[in-house]
Amino acid sequence: MVGDFVQFLPALAKGAGTTAILCIIAAVAGSLLGLVIGLMRSSSWAVVRWISAIFTNFLRGIPLLIILLFTYFALPLLIPGAIFSQMVSGAIGLTLFVSAYIGEVVRGSIESVPKGQFEAAEALGMNFAQKFRYVIMPQAMRVIVPPWVGIILAMIKDSSLVSVIGLVELTQAGKIVGTSTMEPLVAFVLVGAVYFVICYPLGHFGRWYEKRLKASGFNVPHQATATDILDEEPGPRVGGNQ
């Protein structure tokens, strides 16, 4: 029985590899998009701020599964003749999903930088890009790590949903192996263990880093929640030229 199983290990390993690729793509792309979304929240143009707010608010108000079904089934219809592979659709869906959460964390970390830093940068004649590039983001980046890790951790788990659109990633591989071996219990315990081995140390790292930051007096923004979007009107940080 266990011997049977060994021959299926490569299939599970391949699935784990697919999950890894998917997650790396979505983590990189989602972080970049999230950075843009978060920075848009500091714009001096109200329209830009509202676009960012609506994007964030909407994506966080619907299930990831719906986003994935949409990017897989509906999105290709918008581009005549396009067929997206499951990997591409999954990566797009996951990227959009995490970018909304990362955008909120970026906004929170920008808000954690004292107002005087914005004013000092402006008083020296820096424009928007210079101000954020040299003064604000280096300071914001320090506190962004723990909530960012939290989001990536959740994303790794959530990536299992991409199996629903048929991508043979780790969870789907487990399902296939479970069916062919007639040992679904073993298969899913094994799959769960792989996720655990990746996520558990990541969570520990996040908490360790957060403690260290707090010990040195930083105000760490907590992970964005579904209701805190209502906390305040989006707006630029400085009462300058609005």
């Binding site: 299992s160 399902k175 040992e183 679904p184 219990l185 899913f188 655990f196 996520c199 969570g203």
Partner: peptide
């Protein structure tokens, strides 16, 4: 707490729906 927070919900669901049939 640690297991649930570090394993996808979908895997837990599959364990219960498919896995338990073994018992």
């Amino acid at each position: 707490i640690e297991v649930v927070r570090n394993v996808p919900l979908l895997v837990v669901l599959y364990l219960i729906y498919f896995g338990l049939t073994q018992f």
